[in-house]
């Protein structure tokens, strides 16, 4: 059978019908919540902007991407105009271009941070929840210690001995973030593990790891997804916070927080320097929150 034929026969099969129906149902529930649809649209737009930044930005060279400094002092301090919709900064760089490139950094930062956080936090939560006993106590008390310090303060403490920069910032935020996932997953696992299907699996002689990853994990992915979406916004916010405090990305990197910090001294006269990167942070965080809220309704889960 050729690939096309196989595809045709699959399309007709009961299997395909099931999958289609499930997808439609999911889409319907998503549509019930216009805010989350708006969030999703915003995020898709942001992703497109991030990918095609060099083609969209009117002045890619001004972005300071990869730390390449660019100056055009002749055009410094332009107010927002048609030529420079977001205006220009003290070095004559087009702020719109910099904000567009900043999208890349923010999304990458959020993604990297949460990948690390989930990579550490989720397995630990699964183990603590399912195995119980002393491992559980050790893991959960460690998370308690991490969670007892405000996230930004802890992230600051981590960055201090290190070279300030974007990578440092990401590392610091990851270290702050994983305990949340451990705690979330732990709570979920404790309730899932009491269900009969886990015992049924034990009754088959299934090994612990298989039970944890094949039986329990699929039942905790929904809250993880929701938290992931909500946290993308917060992680970007903390990243921007570090940038603002000078401990994250360094100028001329077009990181939104760093840009807000740099423009701050020129407020309120040259308001456009800080306002536009600030708006970008605001909209991005909002979009992820909307999406997360929508997903929470769809999956019907509780996430703190």
């Amino acid at each position: 059978m050729s690939v096309v034929e196989r595809y045709q026969s699959f399309k007709e099969s009961e299997q395909a019908n099931r999958y289609r129906e499930e997808a439609l149902r999911f889409a319907w529930r998503f549509r019930q919540n216009p805010m989350s649809l708006f969030g999703l649209g915003m995020i898709l737009l942001l992703i497109l902007i991030a990918i095609f930044a060099p083609y969209i930005a009117p002045n890619p060279a001004h972005a300071g991407w990869r730390g390449e400094p660019a100056v055009d002092f002749g055009n410094a301090w332009h107010e927002p105009s048609l030529a420079h919709p977001f205006g220009t900064d003290q070095a004559g760089r087009d702020i719109l271009s910099r904000v567009i490139f900043g999208t890349r950094l923010s999304l990458i930062l959020g993604l990297v941070v949460l990948t690390i956080a989930i990579g550490i936090g989720v397995p630990l939560g699964l183990i603590a929840g399912y195995v119980g006993g002393i491992p559980s106590t050790i893991i959960m008390r460690t998370t308690d210690v991490f969670l007892s310090v405000p996230p930004l303060v802890l992230a600051l403490a981590v960055t201090v001995p290190l070279q300030p920069g974007l990578v440092t910032a990401m590392l610091a935020i990851s270290i702050v973030w994983w305990p949340w996932y451990t705690r979330l997953v732990y709570g979920e696992v404790v309730s899932v593990r009491e269900q009969d299907f886990v015992e049924a699996s034990r009754g088959l002689g299934t090994g612990r790891l298989r039970i944890i990853f094949r039986e329990i994990l699929p039942n905790v992915t929904a809250p993880i997804t929701v938290k992931f979406s909500l946290d993308m916004g917060y992680a970007i916010l903390v990243g921007a916070g570090l940038g603002f405090l000078g401990l994250g990305a360094q100028p001329p990197t077009p990181e939104w927080g760093t840009m807000v910090a740099q423009g701050r001294i020129h407020l309120p006269d040259r308001w456009w320097l800080s306002t536009f990167p600030g708006l970008a942070i605001f909209l991005t965080v909002l979009a992820f929150n909307f999406l997360g809220d929508g997903l929470r309704d769809i999956f019907d889960v509780e996430v703190d």
């Binding site: 269900q195 009969d196 299907f197 049924a200 699996s201 009754g203 088959l204 699929p218």
Partner: peptide, 19 residues
């Protein structure tokens, strides 16, 4: 365990809802 299998009271709980 191969020789002894259990059927539970509540199938909604004894079947993994995500499989």
């Amino acid at each position: 365990r191969r020789q002894v299998q259990v059927v539970y009271q509540d199938p909604a709980s004894s079947l993994n809802p995500r499989k």
